[in-house]
Write a protein that binds this DNA or RNA. Structure first.
Lengths: 149, 149
DNA sequence: ATTGTTGCAAAGTGTTTGCACAAAC
DNA sequence: GTTTGTGCAAACACTTTGCAACAAT
């Protein structure tokens, strides 16, 4: 029993790898490392955070590759790019049953996820009302987190 | 009767100028031009759009000054800086009675304002529920506008 | 062997900062 | 006359692109 390195892979990583092969991508080491790291995340990471974490824990991946891979994953719809008003983008795995939004602390930059059914309902009902083909939405609440308050 | 240049100034510009004096700012030409331009806007402009419009219509203002002025106005709470996921910030006058959010076209970049009471209610109720001092919120719906669809 | 993938360095874009001069008080 | 405001250019931070080497098929 020697498989020490690989942690169990969740549904997201499995589905993502499947989508990647379907879309004709080859299995590259850098992409595998990014997918594996994202798979462990429940919330959004910035490209720099991904770079640092990969350098420490899995396998160093060049910054350009990280951005390229994240863009591919975003286009495939398996990753969501979110802009939380911090001057940088964040990326998180899309798990259809774990849709959520973010609280951002204006002091320390902490990002906290939350979800809310009435909010989703309100957004859905707006989507039907406007002369606009709504494909997605992003909701950011900002203020001070419990620690900074 | 020679006053050809000055258009009528709305409540927002009046209130903003008042806030500026209260806060100890002097009356500078660049800031006056930015305030006057924003005063005419109902929706958000980027720093570059502001620069271009000022160069054409009112009085050219250096880019650095524009950013500095917008930051001051944002800190005074009379301007809102909104990040719509377009890789640049946008700025709009804060009119308490005209709170709104944005639809962003992913194809042409168009920004359209909308408001919705149930949505605001949902956000307000979340604010009370979370362990976080919510100070503001930003809601962006993205997709395709009527023209691009 | 072919074609996609990766890393490096360079270029790009939006924003901020340092500093000297001009303007407001 | 002192202090703040402004413009320019340089510096910055994040992201994208060009290209040569590498790996997957």
């Amino acid at each position: 029993m020697a498989k020490t390195k690989k942690k169990k892979e969740s549904e997201w990583a499995t589905a993502t790898n499947e989508r990647l092969s379907e879309a004709g991508f080859r299995r590259g080491g850098a992409r595998a490392a990014v997918v594996s790291l994202l798979d462990e995340q429940s919330c959004a990471l910035s490209a720099y955070e991904i770079e640092d974490l990969l350098a420490q824990r899995e396998r160093a991946v060049g910054r350009a590759s990280i951005y390229r891979i994240l863009e591919e994953l975003d286009e495939l719809g398996v990753v969501a790019k979110v802009e939380l008003g911090q001057g940088q983008a964040r990326y998180e795995p899309v798990r259809p049953d774990h849709h959520h939004h973010h609280l951002v602390c204006d002091k320390c930059g902490a990002v906290i996820a939350f979800d809310d059914a009435p909010l989703e309902r309100a957004v859905h009902s707006i989507s039907k009302r406007v002369d606009f083909a709504v494909e997605g939405h992003e909701i950011v609440l900002h203020g001070l987190c419990a620690d900074c308050r």
